[in-house]
């Protein structure tokens, strides 16, 4: 199972009436796993309806793969049950952590890239893939800090995880741009080192910008349209990979559905261009 190599949107219940009415031409919808763990009601009713018309990507935000603690087995069971119920074309999680000692921060927190954390994450991923019985995609993070103990570059860290575990990668192009600008490095260099052959999905989102004495600090806010330099990096990336399932994420200050569709259509145009370029 694979997501269609077309644009997709993060599903927001507020947009359900517009989606049900217009049946927009989209490859897939993505949902956050943890929002669909209640017993019943509207969330499941909407998702079941959506599932009939579209491919589904389930995106976990609560597993804390990059944390020091063993994975929460109850949560693994809940993720398994959700995947069994909806049979999504894709399941993805984050190179990040969110919990320690039984407390969840519900944010994607950064970690140092070392042999120790690499081994730990590979163990967690093996456990997750075994539990779900399927391949999983891991997403590169947006970060604001560096760590002195990090001695492996993020791209090499992701490449080795993928090589060792068979994990696919979810390339968030906005996160690449945000992190590289924040750490004063070149996003094109990052993408040149990124194992693009492992990419099963791309994420695009908007970010906020503030000015620090040393230069800009970008915040991955998911609250506005995709920035122009991110569109450019996206086009360059898909010209190398060919068309890939590409998601517009917009979680805060939600606009009307037409605005989201315009973003998805722009992504669709770039994907179609990539397809022609590779064919010619």
């Amino acid at each position: 199972m694979r997501l269609p190599a077309k644009p997709g949107l993060g599903f927001k219940p507020e947009h359900y009436p517009a989606i049900a009415e217009t049946k927009p031409d989209l490859g897939f919808f993505e949902i956050h796993a943890e929002n669909y763990m209640g017993a019943g009601g509207m969330p499941h009713a909407m998702l079941e309806r959506l599932r009939q018309d579209y491919a589904i990507s389930i995106h976990g935000v609560g597993l804390s793969i990059g944390g020091p603690d063993p994975l929460d087995t109850d949560h693994l069971d809940r993720l398994s049950a959700l995947c069994a119920r909806y049979e999504p074309e894709s399941f993805s999680e984050h190179l990040a952590w969110a919990s320690h000692n039984g407390i969840w921060m519900h944010d994607l927190l950064p970690l140092p890239y070392t042999r120790e954390t690499l081994n730990l994450i590979c163990d967690h991923i093996d456990q997750l893939q075994t539990h779900l019985g399927r391949q999983v995609l891991l997403e590169n993070p947006a970060t604001y800090l560096l760590f002195e103990e990090s001695d492996i570059p993020e791209t090499a860290f992701l490449a080795e995880i993928s090589a060792r575990t068979g994990y696919g990668l979810l390339l968030d192009v906005n996160n690449v741009f945000v992190s590289c600008v924040n750490h004063r490095s070149d996003p094109r260099g990052y993408l040149a080192r990124f194992p693009l052959e492992k990419v099963g999905e791309i994420h695009l989102a908007g970010h906020e910008e503030e000015e620090l004495p040393s230069g800009p600090l970008l915040i991955d806010s998911h609250g506005r349209s995709v920035a122009e330099p991110v569109w450019a990096l996206f086009a360059e990336t898909v010209s190398k990979t060919g068309p890939v399932a590409s998601l517009i994420e917009w979680d805060n200050d939600l606009p009307d559905f037409a605005t989201l569709m315009a973003e998805a259509e722009r992504a669709g145009g770039i994907l179609a261009g990539a397809s022609h370029a590779l064919a010619s």
Binding site: D107, L109, P110, P112, Y144, L145, L146, F147, E148, E149, N182, H183, R184, L212, P213, S214, L217, I219
Partner: peptide, 18 residues
């Protein structure tokens, strides 16, 4: 401890984002 950034004087500001 160990958190840093390309301009170390800004590390605290950057940590506050989290």
């Amino acid at each position: 401890e160990g958190a840093t950034s390309t301009a170390p004087s800004e590390t605290e500001h950057r940590f506050r984002v989290y």
